[in-house]
């Protein structure tokens, strides 16, 4: 829109570039209107109504929004989700980066590692959930055996609202394969000559990581951060399958609560209001992240 308004002042070159650019992004623009803008307008309208998805909607004005602020489960689920995002996103980036760096090493059997590390990203979530049992079984689980070495009594992490959230955060790391693969593709894009030159200059492993890998990988890190944020805010499946929001609503994440309202309670109007609030929160967080990160992101290859 900004572009169109000022197009009269554009030079000829800019104008041809504009039309070329718009031509290239036209599939997305079309998809945006059909698959995103239309549903979005639809849900904005319905967020002001009581609507079951079936009979005629009843106009409520701002009632859904005022209800939201006095809804204890809205706040609880928002808190749970933010807690999850705050821990799972940074941990996820570090784990994925470590995996990618390790997979990028010149080790003969690296193909095998890479395949195994990616395996959980292919498997259905209910299979991943099994690692729960192996790791945190109060009697046979590795975690409890480890803790009991230090005299900590065995405990059932899933019976504690905070513990259950932490378990889901740890479990989410099994899905690090996707982000790691993107990092790996980024690492492969860094010219080896840069490292060779640095090595000749006597730079150590850490120095090379800080002055070559990290800056050149920064666009990819930003990408993984933003997608992890968007995924983290919409965390749903793990809790849906494993804990169904419990114990004591400790893993009732925002999307789970939204989903219940939309499809189990048939309160589509309220669910739309919940969606839009999550959308706004997501945009705000992404905006902060983007503007902070943009300063550190380096798009040009430097030699």
């Amino acid at each position: 829109m900004v572009a169109v308004k000022s197009s009269s002042k554009l030079s000829r070159r800019e104008r041809t570039n504009l039309s070329r650019g718009l031509l290239f992004i036209s599939p997305w623009l079309l998809g945006l209107i059909i698959f995103t803008i239309y549903p979005l307008i639809y849900s904005i309208i319905f967020s002001f109504t009581r609507y079951s998805g079936f009979r005629r909607p009843v106009w409520l004005g701002m009632q859904n929004y005022t209800r939201l602020f006095s809804d204890s489960l809205f706040w609880l689920s928002l808190g749970n989700t933010l807690y999850y995002v705050l821990w799972a996103v940074p941990i996820g980036i570090v784990v994925a980066l470590l995996l990618a760096l390790a997979m990028n090493r010149d080790v003969r059997e690296v193909n095998v590692y890479r395949a195994i590390l990616y395996l959980p990203s292919i498997l259905p979530t209910f299979a991943l959930a099994f690692i729960f049992i192996v790791l945190i079984n109060p009697q046979y689980g590795i975690v409890n055996i480890f803790f009991s070495l230090f005299g900590v009594p065995t405990q059932n992490f899933l019976s504690d609202p905070l513990g259950a959230k932490n378990v889901i955060i740890v479990l989410a790391q099994l899905g690090a394969g996707n982000a790691a693969l993107i990092f790996l593709a980024g690492l492969r894009g860094i010219p080896a000559t840069l490292y060779d030159a640095a090595r000749i200059d006597g730079a150590g492993v850490w120095r090379r990581f800080y002055s070559i890998t990290l800056p050149l990988l920064s666009p990819i890190i930003l990408f993984n951060l933003i997608t992890a944020l968007s995924g983290g805010l919409q965390i749903f499946q793990q809790a849906y399958i494993m804990t169904n929001g419990g114990p004591n609503n400790g893993t009732l994440f925002y999307m789970l609560y939204l989903y219940r309202n939309a499809f189990a309670y048939a309160q589509l109007g309220y669910a739309c209001a919940l969606s839009l609030v999550l959308f706004v929160i997501g945009l705000a967080l992404a905006g902060i992240l983007f503007s902070v990160a943009q300063r550190f992101v380096n798009y040009e290859m430097v030699s």
Binding site: A129, I133, P138, Q155, N156, S159, M242
Partner: peptide
């Protein structure tokens, strides 16, 4: 003791067992 029972059920019938 609710926590003790949770430990019991988690041991003998873990989540997703």
């Amino acid at each position: 003791d609710f926590q003790k029972i949770s430990t019991f059920t988690a041991t003998y019938q873990p989540a997703n067992a």
